[in-house]
Amino acid sequence: MFEARLNTSQVLKKVLDAIKDLLNEATFDCSDSGIQLQAMDNSHVSLVSLSLRSDGFDKYRCDRNLSMGMNLANMAKIMKCANNDDTLTMKAQDNADTVTFMFESQNQEKVSDYEMKLMNLDQEHLGIPETDYACVVRMPAMEFARICRDLSQFGESVVISCTKEGVKFSASGDAGSANIKLAQTSTVDKEDESVVIEMQEPVTLTFACRYLNSFTKATPLCNQVQLSMSADVPLVVEYRIPDLGHIRYYLAPKIED
């Protein structure tokens, strides 16, 4: 028996919005410790890794490890039927081929349940090594989303250069070129608005705008985003989900042809 309850549906709606741009379907691996999801986008350029800890749920029970393959468009249809402040309960029997989403209104006067067929997805899991990154940037998630959106008008790629002084985002194309520089913030009183750079070595890497823009669908989950970079390895874009877990996106850099 698997059962996981959240007192507000909103957080799962946001999580789904953060992954459904990149993934058509995905397997939710449920265990005693929580729910994990790892999946590559269709073109195998990026990887999504989601972790929701069992202790972040308002109720959590998982007697046996369970892999639930879900069509995310269908899951989105169901999640659309929940009000943000409805209590959400996901339920499945052991070895079941369906999952049930139950939504309860705050006053308990409306209870809806939606049953969805599970899929057998043959998904490859990749091992992600623990890495010390040359540069780690923490910045407001809204600011990162804005920069990705603005720069994608000018080219298909964004060059991210990080030094101790700051981080620079650049794009160029037929219309011209664009450069956005962010310096480390000096004040520490507004943590959510700060730009913090931890640098061992300066790094310059090139990434496809399209994927960065998809990652920013996670912006509503968290005030800050963390970018981790080293030469010639995938970028990690991490959004923490307060009290529940995190979503990490890995993006292969573009390399000189």
């Binding site: 195998h44 350029v45 990887l47 490859e124 990749l126 091992g127 992600i128 090594p129 890995y250 292969a252």
Partner: peptide, 14 residues
């Protein structure tokens, strides 16, 4: 000119 590689060339299959 830059070329987009696959994420699978960085992380090994489990």
């Amino acid at each position: 000119k830059t070329k987009q590689g696959s994420i699978m060339s960085f992380f090994a299959k489990k």
